[in-house]
């Protein structure tokens, strides 16, 4: 599909978003979005999801309900979001004010050979989130638009949904720790202080 604009660089977009995170908690999707978050810098309050495709936004919902005073960011990919579209309806019904779901939309399954996803054929994820009832949604097509929208990710009454149209460059993997039990315990200790 011919693009009408220069798409964003995903690593740069994620780095710019996370630069302003302060105390925000981060859930990643699996695959490229996970590597993007790792490339932006590790944190005890990053939970890198290496599996369970389709679950990232819902992990974010459970966390946002449990931690209503902390901002929760989910940064995932279009393929991952498409696998769990029902989550948009479930999250919209719960209306967590502190949850922002960010989809890095390269219109490709990046880890499996760059096959086209449904967004490549025109499926509008931000439109679906809006129809589900997210009070604030956006599709970001330029660096300027991203700069303007980043404060909303942290301050707007959520749930916020944002699709960032990124290019489909295949970037080097930046692998964070991958032991799930360790990642889980590290995150919970940093946020709650105890495993009980």
């Amino acid at each position: 599909m011919q693009t009408r604009f220069k798409k964003l660089d995903r690593r740069d977009a994620v780095a710019r978003i996370l630069k302003q995170r302060r105390e925000a908690l981060l859930i990643t999707g699996l695959g490229s979005s996970c590597w993007d978050a790792a490339a932006a810098g590790d944190s005890d309050t990053n939970f890198y999801v290496w599996g369970g495709m389709g679950g990232a936004a819902m992990i974010g919902l459970g966390l946002a309900i449990a931690q209503p005073l902390r901002r929760v960011l989910v940064i995932t990919g279009d393929g991952e979001m498409l696998m769990g579209l029902g989550a948009l309806a479930t999250i919209a019904v719960q209306r967590p004010k502190n949850l922002s779901v960010i989809v890095l939309d390269n219109e490709r399954y990046g880890e499996t050979g760059m096959q086209a996803t449904h967004t490549h054929y025109g499926v509008d994820l931000a439109g679906m989130a809006a129809c589900a009832g997210f009070p604030l949604t956006a599709t970001i097509n330029s660096n300027k638009a991203l700069t303007e929208f980043i404060p909303q990710l942290y301050e707007a009454n959520g749930p916020v949904f944002c699709s960032v149209k990124v290019d489909d460059a295949k970037l080097p993997m930046v692998l964070p720790e991958r032991d799930g039990t360790w990642l889980k315990s590290r995150f919970r200790k940093a946020v709650v202080g105890s495993l009980d």
Partner: peptide, 11 residues
Amino acid sequence: AMLAGAWLGGH
């Protein structure tokens, strides 16, 4: 997935 996130946040 939601209850994994809940536990991460202390619920």
